[in-house]
Design a protein around this nucleic acid. Structure first.
Lengths: 134, 134
DNA sequence: TTGCGTGCAAAGGTTTTGCATGGCA
DNA sequence: TGCCATGCAAAACCTTTGCACGCAA
């Protein structure tokens, strides 16, 4: 079986995400941040555990933006992120949750009329936020 | 100034996209396909020109799926791709255009109520298509 | 004690860059 | 002719893998 042991490293990575729910990080940044905190976790371990967290739906992997490396972000269960859409500004990188009734109905519409199950934990809409559009 | 010369290579790359508007390719695949056709274009040239076409909004760059490398696809002006959303199945990779009145109103809603300008040439929703969801 | 987890080093793969040559205008 | 474009080779990156050692249960 996989990942049956609770280790210090896994706890540190999870806690790092939980303490930074609105930010997004590369694996390298996570490893560096933990090293600076005095609780270093090797980059390889970060890559491996982060992949597992993505598969479990606990964090979001973001690849579409400006960053060359993949970014990872905690999925806060209290925010109900799986039922709303998300935006990311192509210029400043800011990330927005779109919790509103109209948009929550988009996925239902797509399923009912187009027979496609959108996964909000894997989808991000890109464009320009108000500030960056001037 | 940049790219002021019309070369055989640029023409071949553009024509390749125009002749395969519903498919998506990696840079390597484009270079290989042109080589097989007897009109080889170096991989470096493909990377460089494809980047320019993306910046000009002529082709779409797709990074979120299963493929490790970036995929590129022609944006057919006749299909009005900038006004509708797109889906890509995480399992089979199939790509869908979502042309319908309800969904065309989504971007307007996001702009009016959330002050964000979604760019449909840079955004793809991921999930499972009907077949792959069983 | 057993076997999963960790992390270094190395490999693998994609994309970018340097540079000499080639080709457009 | 002047300058941009091409493409090889190499570099630069990001991510994954192999392996010996460490640690949880």
């Amino acid at each position: 079986m996989n990942n049956t042991y609770n280790t210090k490293q896994k706890k540190l990575i999870s806690e790092f995400f939980e303490g930074n729910t609105e930010k997004q990080f590369t694996c390298d940044e996570i490893s560096e941040a933990l090293k600076i905190k005095g609780t270093p976790v090797g980059k390889t371990t970060v890559y491996r555990y982060v992949e597992k967290l993505v598969n479990e739906g606990k964090i979001r992997k973001i690849t579409g933006g400006i960053s060359k490396s993949a970014l990872y972000q905690y999925i806060d269960e209290d925010m109900n992120c799986n039922s709303h859409m998300h935006l990311k500004c192509l210029k400043c990188g800011e990330f927005f949750h779109l919790g509103c009734d109209f948009l929550n109905s988009v996925n239902d519409h797509i399923y009912e009329h187009h027979r496609f199950r959108v996964d909000n934990s894997k989808s991000v809409l890109y464009g320009l936020c108000e500030k960056c559009a001037e």
